[in-house]
């Protein structure tokens, strides 16, 4: 598996897209810090970008990579290698290279602007952890979709729809249900609804660590009681982990029966 991971990883490196992605974050980081020398404020702006963009990039990259390397995959499948090994190698190759672009691309400018002297180091760390999780989650989801659809256009369409659903439509439905069921106690509901969407979960997890959380008021107090404790924090990271494990597990299930 490690060998295939290495092949996928270097393949991506050669394709120069990971460099573009890396350069994008690098420039973003430097520009943000240049415009606003305050590390902790830059973290807030970055959060807005990361929770939308990493899932999108992860989804598109995952689907594109899967369809593009189909011929190579079929060649590998002809060899005496386990299917799981091949696909897990590819999955981790894509995810790791994307995560590295993110971590290095943002890490370097922030280090250069004195992250270690700043009090925002914990928030920044959390941001990177959450970003990495989102990467792994959305690449896994994209692989799932690509595995289920031979038709590239269809697969691509579903992948984008999936991103659109989790990033936008889900929140819309969430908002509408909150407004409609206004007369009922909604704290538990909103807590659970957040858990079911990795993007929302990441957003809340970071928001609560920033001082903007005071805006959340009464509802925020319920969230804080849950996420603020170390148990809630571990639990929500656990849920993010589950969001990685479940799609990966489904990839492996699907592989067993799939006729290539």
């Amino acid at each position: 598996m490690f060998k295939i991971l290495k092949y996928s990883f270097f393949d991506l490196m050669r394709s120069s897209w990971s460099y573009v992605y890396f350069a994008f974050y690098l420039v973003l980081g430097f520009v943000l810090l240049f415009l606003n020398n305050d590390v902790s404020k830059a973290v807030i702006t970055l959060m807005n970008i990361i929770i939308v963009l990493t899932p999108l990039i992860g989804t598109i990259f995952g689907v594109m990579y899967f369809y593009n390397s189909k011929e190579f995959t079929e060649l590998l499948l002809a060899q005496p290698i386990k299917r799981t090994t091949i696909f897990m190698g590819q999955y981790f190759g894509v995810s790791v290279s994307l995560a590295l672009s993110l971590i290095l691309g943002l890490g370097i400018p922030f280090l250069a602007y004195g992250l270690f002297q700043s009090s925002a180091i914990f928030e920044f760390g959390l941001l990177l952890v959450v970003g990495t999780f989102l990467n792994f989650i959305f690449v896994a989801l994209a692989f799932n979709i690509a595995l289920s659809h031979e038709n590239k256009i269809k697969g691509f369409g579903y992948a984008i729809l999936m991103w659109l659903f989790l990033a936008v439509i889900y929140d819309g439905a969430f908002l509408i249900s909150l407004v409609i069921f206004d007369d009922y106690p909604l704290d538990k509901f909103s807590l659970i609804a957040t858990m079911f969407n990795p993007i929302d979960l990441s957003r809340i997890l970071i928001l609560l660590k920033l001082d903007i959380s005071a805006l959340l008021g009464y509802t925020g107090a319920v969230f804080k009681q849950f996420f603020g404790t170390s148990l809630g924090f571990v639990l929500s990271l656990g849920v993010l982990g589950l969001w990685v494990i479940l799609p990966v597990w489904r990839i492996n299930m699907k592989l067993r029966k799939k006729d290539f």
Binding site: I51, D171, L178, D187, I204, G217, T219
Partner: peptide, 21 residues
């Protein structure tokens, strides 16, 4: 305006959907 009507919706603060609406 929505938050004023239904305070619980504040949990969607800084979500992409909110920016769009």
């Amino acid at each position: 305006y929505v938050v004023n009507q239904t305070p619980e919706t504040i949990v969607l603060l800084r979500s992409l959907f909110v920016d769009i609406i």
